[in-house]
Amino acid sequence: MSRAFPLVALLLLLGGCQRYATPGETRTGGGARAIALSSQSITLPTESVTLPASAEIVSTNCTACHSAEQILTQPRLKPEQWATEVAKMRTAYKASIAEADDPKLVAALVALQDGTAR
């Protein structure tokens, strides 16, 4: 017992160390072989939030790339801020938004926020 106890304590200590990285450094080992890698496949839920029919121009131009929550959860943006976002989607992300539609699209985005209960 008097000899076994320190051994048990040492094993517990080592076991405890096994779980965590040494502070500030990657640690070699860590039971990596125990991490089995097996193929994964998932199905994502369908979106449940939709835009009102009055915002059709928004649906047409925006929701191909992201679901409606992205638009509906934005803070209140001024028309010029929405215009900047629209321009960014076109220039940076190559969204096929016709420039001629910008005024209508921006107006619809503003109207959408005005009509959204907070």
Partner: peptide, 14 residues
């Protein structure tokens, strides 16, 4: 491959 990567020295960090 993942096998080849897992055969290399493993490290862990929080």
């Amino acid at each position: 491959s993942l096998d080849a990567i897992q055969s290399m020295p493993a490290v862990e960090i929080a």
